[in-house]
Design a protein around this nucleic acid. Structure first.
Lengths: 193, 193
DNA sequence: GACAATACGGAGGCTGTCTCCGCTTTGTCA
DNA sequence: TGACAAAGCGGAGACAGCCTCCGTATTGTC
């Protein structure tokens, strides 16, 4: 696994850190604008660095995606912990699934990138998904223990279903920018409980 | 809409028909092998024609996808009609959804291509999806009229959900080639009924 | 058999990915 | 403060895929 950028043995050189941060910032903008398939050369250009610099810091698209999502994932992780302390285990799972689906909707194509990375040991994006799958598992187990979930489904499946919901909501919306996610999710959770 | 290839005013010239058929045949193989993003230049090459010939017959990827799917869609349409004559309206809808999901799983990436085309007036793939959405609507209305479906969902949404299920099943399978579709579908339908 | 209509094909322009390596910047140590 | 090695930079260019253009070849018709 490549974690040299995230946890280097020695601190990054000043110029390297400057470039790293500029790239991540610009990447977030580009992904928001063009989806996860935004041109990497273009990101490098807009960040004022050469393509070589971008690819040295982020050997592939997943690495950059992962870096641009760290904050969002931190917040998600916190939410997961807070939800474990709430009373209604069923509602907690519902809220968690909605948060997961919203996360996967951050940028167009993200649900796809995430799901693809899940089956790819080497992807840093997939690795960091492990934490989210685990959190899903804890909330699912608790909900099941309290009888709030009866259906047979694994944490991993639930995680993928959240992604597929994000996928469906993005595609079902007939342009009209309607937020279909809650309704679609309700449909799914109705079957789960 | 471009239907010149499907319903020409005058019959195609012999060489044109020969090439058309070779391209469609090879395309099916290539999509099966590399998913819907298979290289079109490569398909042309393997079909023994120039790129120009491929693009003249199929101005874009969707046109080729659509042509390579005609048979499967025919069978699907027939199934839809047969299902309308069965007794159990709920079970008929279940079976239809499974068939839709399997169709969208034909090739890797197909669910995505289909869903994308749904929002694209000009796509021949999307146009031909209209028939399937209509069939979904008929089966859904019937199931609802008989009380087999209580949840609030449109035909279009159901169609997209079938695609999203295909998407999820393709991604949830941890390589192990397991067929998760029926279970995932059961989960969804449990919420719908 | 000759002619017009139709179709062919592949060179080449374009965009995007990713690598390689000569050059520049940085941090350190005297 | 200056000098040196290590670390980092960047952009040219190789490569792959998409798609168009137009000179050439094939076909059907009279």
């Amino acid at each position: 696994m490549n974690t040299e950028a995230a946890a280097p043995v020695r601190p990054m050189r000043a110029d390297a850190r400057r470039n790293y941060e500029a790239i991540v910032r610009v990447a977030g903008e580009a992904f928001a604008e063009h989806g996860t398939h935004a041109s990497l050369d273009d990101i490098a250009c807009r960040a004022g660095v050469g393509a070589g610099t971008l690819y040295r810091h982020f050997p592939n698209r997943d690495c950059l995606l992962e870096a641009a999502l760290v904050e969002s994932r931190h917040e998600l992780k916190d939410l997961g912990e807070r939800l474990l302390d709430t009373d209604d285990a069923g509602a907690a799972l519902d809220e968690w699934m909605l948060a997961l689906a919203r996360h996967a909707s951050t940028w167009d194509g993200l649900a796809d990138s995430i799901a693809q990375s899940l089956n790819n040991e080497k992807s840093p994006l997939g690795a960091s998904c492990g934490t989210l799958v685990d959190a899903t598992g804890r909330l699912l187990d608790r909900a099941r223990a309290r009888g709030a979930v009866t259906a047979d489904a694994s944490a991993r499946e639930l995680f993928v279903m959240a992604g597929s919901l994000a996928w469906a909501a993005d595609r079902a919306a007939r342009g009209s920018g309607e937020d279909e996610l809650p309704r679609l999710l309700a449909l799914l959770m109705r079957g789960l409980h």
